[in-house]
């Protein structure tokens, strides 16, 4: 705001008293001050523009309308609900329902397509992998890890490598997810049990020692040659029926390979000995009934493409 009467001292010109054509203009140029003075600096007391005042009134009206329409006042257990019945939870539920409906065509396609043909259909595979990733994070990652790597040497299988206890084809993975492993709730669940050779007194202490050395040799680790040779006969008699003559394992009965670098419960002498003495295995729930068929197929597709699918 320029004050014409307040010229700087070095300005030599002192214009005569201005004549304003409109008497109101004088008032506009010379408004009252707030009455405060800070180091000689005063503040004009100009009124607000009209639109500003209107905006202020509008906000008050808007607040009243909002309180009537939307949840507003906190009560003892919950807030007033407003006549629109709006809630953020309701909005989320509606969003989920909307997405489900949008994806229904994809779910249908997933269920109708043969498991082995999903991969060939680029769009469907892309949907299956993304949907499966979401299912995996919610349902599987607690044991198998968010990256699918399991927990090394602790009985939670790594899904990224090329070894599968119960098979790594789409069909195998799908069945495992569907019915689970040692899942007592479903008759089709995968089931296997290794005897606790030590606990149950099937093998003597020294026989167990010999067979552990033989298994160490099978997997290419350092082993005592004499003990290992002695263990071969015990292995063939007690273990080979499931784990195979050369330790290659058998995914039909869920027997892990013993001639590889991958160990579900660790591959040291102590780890293997503990397994032989006590027998150990994990369980996995079946997801039939918990997840929709399309979701089970989607998560199978996701796991299959993590790097180990066969």
């Amino acid at each position: 705001m320029v004050d014409p009467t307040n010229k700087t001292p070095d300005n030599k010109v002192s214009p005569p008293e201005r004549q304003y054509p409109d008497p109101k203009a004088k008032l506009k140029k010379d408004p009252p001050t707030t009455g405060h003075s800070w180091d000689g600096i005063e503040e004009y007391d100009n009124p607000m523009p009209r639109w500003w005042l209107w905006t202020f009134y509008l906000t008050i009206i808007w607040a009243v309308i909002y309180m009537i329409l939307y949840p507003a006042w906190p009560m003892v257990t919950r807030a007033t609900s407003g006549i629109l019945g709006y809630s953020t939870r309701g909005e989320v539920a509606a969003e989920i329902a909307r997405f489900d409906q949008q994806n229904q065509v994809w779910f249908d396609r997933l269920v109708e397509t043969d498991l082995d043909d999903i991969r060939a259909d680029g769009e469907l595979q892309s949907f299956a992998v993304n949907a499966g990733a979401a299912v995996f994070r919610a349902q599987c990652s607690q044991c198998h890890g968010t990256g699918g790597a399991g927990v090394q040497a602790s009985g939670f299988p790594n899904l990224l490598d090329d070894e599968w206890i119960w098979g790594g084809t789409m069909e195998d993975i799908h069945e495992t997810v569907r019915y689970g492993i040692r899942n007592e709730d479903h008759v089709d669940a995968r089931w296997s049990a290794m005897p606790a050779f030590g606990q149950d007194g099937i093998l003597e202490e020294d026989e167990i020692d010999q067979v552990v050395h033989y298994v160490l040799r099978l997997s290419g680790q350092q082993a005592d040659a004499t003990l290992a040779s002695a263990g071969e006969e015990i292995y063939l008699a007690n273990c080979a029926s499931c784990h195979g003559d050369s330790g290659e394992g058998d995914s039909f009965v869920g027997a892990p390979a013993l001639n590889s670098a991958i160990w579900l419960y660790g591959g040291t002498y102590e780890d293997i000995r503990y397994s032989v003495v006590n027998s150990r295995f994990g369980i996995m729930p079946g997801f039939a009934g918990r997840l929709r068929d399309a979701e089970i197929r989607a998560v199978a597709s996701y796991v299959h493409q993590l790097g180990g699918g066969q």
């Binding site: 009252p32 001050t33 707030t34 100009n46 009124p47 523009p49 005042l53």
Partner: peptide
């Protein structure tokens, strides 16, 4: 400058 004697306006109307 002194404070105006008049009742202050609530808003400054736009002068067209």
């Amino acid at each position: 400058m002194s404070a105006s004697e008049e009742t202050p306006q609530l808003y400054q109307a736009r002068e067209p």
